[in-house]
């Protein structure tokens, strides 16, 4: 048995740090140790695909996005497709941005207002229950079902036709549940006392909601926007039958002139093509898309972490 003085030596500390000291005491200590080691390995298995995917996508696509040659770097994002490796993916890049902007313009007000209504103007009960339930169902619906619905409802039934409008409306439908539920969570986290303080000053529910509650919940609401945008930005399936595809940026709101390309769709189209330069371009597009999506996700993460830290 070690005396107290010895337990301070460096070797002993390393030994203690490895956990082996305890593991060898009995069978139960040992199985506890093995269990922890196995779980440690499991977590490595779980996160490793992230690095494998990053390695593949960045390995081939890095110079497309960060290089300075023809069709690389900014030229990759901002020139239209050309022959071979020349030209970029301006149609897809601008297309994705336009789709997201229009989808947000429709989806964000709709879902924020909806969240305000069910959180501030209803008591827990039927209306709130139904809206919460249907948004959860909506969040679980496969993206291809959204695509098929967008096709049959927007393109066919409403005669909007394929293009930017149908595509971004379909994406807006997909954004609603995410934003609605995160906004609702954010509103719910605003302490009741804050609302009461405003109401006690004689403000109406309306102005309390807009000036006090929503302002307090704002970071949470922004997180919801970002998460929803990040999610639909990478969606391919809903766009296949609603947005069409195009080598240029849409110039009209209806008809073939409104057909619009997107980055995910472009990746899909290029990757199934045997020509090698298109594969390289697919990787470049995938890398650019990943960077955009992950950056948005990261910002959302930072905001929500900052908020929780402030509240705690």
């Amino acid at each position: 048995m070690l005396k107290n003085g010895e337990s301070e030596s460096i070797l002993y500390r390393l030994y203690a740090l490895s956990g082996l000291k305890d593991a060898l005491k009995s069978r139960r200590h040992f199985s506890d140790y093995i269990f922890k080691v196995i779980l440690g390995l499991v977590i490595i298995i779980i996160v490793s695909p992230f690095f494998l995917i990053l390695f593949q996508v960045a390995g081939v696509g890095f110079w497309q996005v960060f290089g300075t040659g023809p069709g690389q770097g900014l030229e990759f994002l901002f020139t239209f497709p050309g022959a071979g490796l020349e030209g970029g993916i301006r149609n897809a890049f601008v297309g994705t941005v336009e789709l997201i902007v229009v989808a947000s313009a429709v989806g964000i007000p709709l879902s924020v207002c909806g969240a305000i209504y069910i959180n501030e103007y209803t008591r827990p009960g039927h209306v709130r229950g139904i809206v919460e339930f249907t948004s959860d169902v909506l969040a679980g619906i496969p993206s291809i079902v959204f695509g098929a619905f967008g096709f049959v409802f927007l393109v066919d039934f409403l005669h909007i036709g394929m293009g930017i409008i149908a595509g971004s409306l379909t994406l807006a439908f997909m954004m609603i549940p995410t934003i609605l539920r995160t906004t609702q969570e954010a509103l719910r986290a605003v302490p009741m006392s804050l609302r009461e303080a405003s109401l006690a000053l004689g403000a109406t529910k309306w102005s309390t909601t807009w000036n006090v509650t929503l302002r307090a919940a704002f970071p949470g609401v922004i997180t919801g926007f970002l998460l929803a945008i990040g999610r639909v930005m990478g969606e391919t399936a809903p766009l296949i039958f609603t947005a069409g595809n195009s080598l240029i940026v849409p110039t009209e709101l209806a008809g073939p002139g409104s057909w619009i390309a997107s980055m995910p769709y472009t990746i899909w189209a290029y990757i199934s093509d045997p020509r090698e330069y298109l594969q390289v371009k697919a990787h470049g597009t995938a890398l650019a898309l990943m960077i955009m999506v992950l950056a948005i996700d990261l910002i959302a993460n930072l905001i929500s972490r900052k908020v929780t830290r402030r509240l705690v």
Binding site: F50, I53, V57, R231, G234, P264, L289
Partner: peptide, 24 residues
Amino acid sequence: PIKMIIEMMAAIPSIVYGLWAYLV
């Protein structure tokens, strides 16, 4: 950091997973 990586994995578009699966 681990949580962050896992959340990022959830954010990677499925087409990118598809690309990796198809080619690797």
